[in-house]
Amino acid sequence: MRKIKISISAAVFNDITELSFEDRTLMDKAIGARKKAYAPYSKFSVGAALLLENNEIVTGNNQENAAYPSGMCAERVAIWKAGSDFPNVKILQLAISASSSISKVDKPVGPCGACRQSLSEYEIKQKQPFPVLFMGEVGEIIKTASLDALLPFSFDSSYL
């Protein structure tokens, strides 16, 4: 048997005011998208914003449906919209923000497992990692250097 050690590093910012201008601009877009989410069932709204290599910012938000699990997460809405509208343009960065109408979300909310897998596909496809910033409604923000930091041992086409 052989053991390996996996380690990741992430930057933790106390709040949005500590972000660089570029990071804050992207997070503001994610917050704006979050405020337009359709979440009447979970009351949990998520917004995502992708900065593309052509300087376009593509946003997405969660879209729920009474027929669970027919809804879709914000991250996948944004990534598939980017893939559809700009199929050969690299993603430079992703920002995510989440809130609840039931309680204050004051800790960072990372992408769910399905979104991590979908985002990983695009990071692998473009052969270039992209940083991921995520936060709740207020409070700390986490920034990782890549999706790989959030999903080690990801499944990709090399297994097919």
Score class of each variant (00 low, 15 high):
residue 1 M to G: 15
residue 1 M to E: 12
residue 2 R to E: 13
residue 11 A to T: 12
residue 11 A to V: 03
residue 12 V to T: 13
residue 16 I to L: 11
residue 22 E to L: 09
residue 24 R to P: 04
residue 25 T to W: 05
residue 25 T to L: 12
residue 26 L to Y: 01
residue 26 L to C: 06
residue 31 I to A: 06
residue 31 I to D: 07
residue 31 I to L: 14
residue 34 R to S: 03
residue 38 Y to C: 02
residue 41 Y to I: 06
residue 41 Y to M: 01
residue 42 S to Y: 07
residue 45 S to F: 13
residue 46 V to R: 07
residue 49 A to F: 03
residue 51 L to G: 05
residue 51 L to S: 08
residue 52 L to P: 05
residue 53 E to R: 09
residue 56 E to V: 14
residue 57 I to G: 01
residue 61 N to D: 06
residue 66 A to N: 11
residue 66 A to D: 11
residue 67 A to R: 11
residue 68 Y to C: 06
residue 69 P to C: 06
residue 70 S to H: 11
residue 74 A to P: 00
residue 76 R to Q: 12
residue 76 R to D: 07
residue 81 K to G: 06
residue 85 D to C: 02
residue 85 D to M: 13
residue 86 F to M: 02
residue 86 F to A: 01
residue 87 P to Q: 05
residue 89 V to K: 03
residue 89 V to F: 04
residue 93 Q to L: 03
residue 95 A to K: 00
residue 95 A to N: 00
residue 96 I to A: 04
residue 99 S to D: 10
residue 101 S to V: 02
residue 102 I to K: 12
residue 103 S to T: 09
residue 103 S to R: 05
residue 104 K to T: 04
residue 105 V to L: 02
residue 111 P to I: 05
residue 112 C to R: 01
residue 114 A to G: 08
residue 115 C to W: 01
residue 118 S to E: 14
residue 125 K to R: 13
residue 125 K to P: 00
residue 128 Q to P: 03
residue 131 P to H: 01
residue 134 F to S: 06
residue 134 F to N: 08
residue 140 E to A: 15
residue 143 K to H: 11
residue 145 A to I: 04
residue 145 A to E: 08
residue 145 A to S: 12
residue 150 L to H: 10
residue 150 L to C: 02
residue 155 F to G: 06
residue 156 D to T: 15
residue 158 S to F: 07
residue 160 L to C: 11
